[in-house]
């Protein structure tokens, strides 16, 4: 290819890049983000001081929620436990709950969806009720730590749905705020 062709192509690429749009935010997004920043920023600062004052370890692990026997590659899958496991967390205090997924073999492209009850947030995802990841599971136990924050005293049921190909399992965790 001649240099003049390459130069022309590079110019075309540059023109396309200069034309490449970025959408404007939704109407009112900035205002809502600023309000949330002042509210959430103040809250996190208060939490940090409180935690420091008591000398408590930040993000202490309080509960291990073990989901065992989730063998996605076997047809006779055990049903999710009829008794819903539960955990109690304090208002506005980040707590880490460990989810352990046991898989009989390594799985690629599994999708995990965590659905949170009203008033419970995942630390780092303020305001989001549903968070979805695409994930790979190793053979054996796979640990997923979720740091939960109660922003209201209501609590509720947290759902973790794992999907792989045409199979899925939903597990439940009752979150109480005390």
């Amino acid at each position: 290819m001649q240099k003049s062709d390459a130069d022309k192509q590079e110019r075309e690429v540059l023109e396309l890049l200069q034309d490449y749009p970025a959408p404007a935010p939704d109407r009112g997004f900035y205002e809502r983000a600023l309000v949330r920043a002042t509210h959430e920023g103040s809250k996190r600062q208060r939490n940090r001081w409180m935690m420091t004052g008591f000398g408590a370890a930040i993000a202490a692990t309080i509960a291990a929620w073990v989901i065992g026997g989730m063998l996605l590659n076997e047809p006779q899958l055990p049903e999710a436990a009829s008794t819903i496991p539960g955990v109690t967390i304090a208002l506005a205090e980040p707590r880490t709950v460990n989810l352990v997924f046991a898989s009989a073999k390594a799985l690629d492209s599994a999708t995990l969806t965590v659905t949170l009850p009203d008033g419970i947030e995942l630390d780092g995802f303020p305001g989001q009720r549903e968070i979805t990841w695409e994930t790979s599971l190793s053979e054996g136990r796979n640990l997923l730590p979720l740091t939960l924050v109660a922003v209201t005293p209501t609590g509720g049921e947290l759902l973790a749905r794992l999907e792989h190909e045409d199979r899925d399992r939903t597990f439940r965790l009752q979150v109480e705020v005390g």
Binding site: P23, P25, F29, A33, L34, R36, A37, T38, E40, G41, S42, R44, Q45, G124, F125, P126, G127, Q128
Partner: peptide, 18 residues
């Protein structure tokens, strides 16, 4: 992505306020 851009933007403002 719009969803991730908004989350990142929001998290930045929270950090900045702190």
């Amino acid at each position: 992505s719009k969803a991730e851009a908004e989350d990142l933007f929001q998290e930045l403002l929270i950090k900045a306020y702190q």
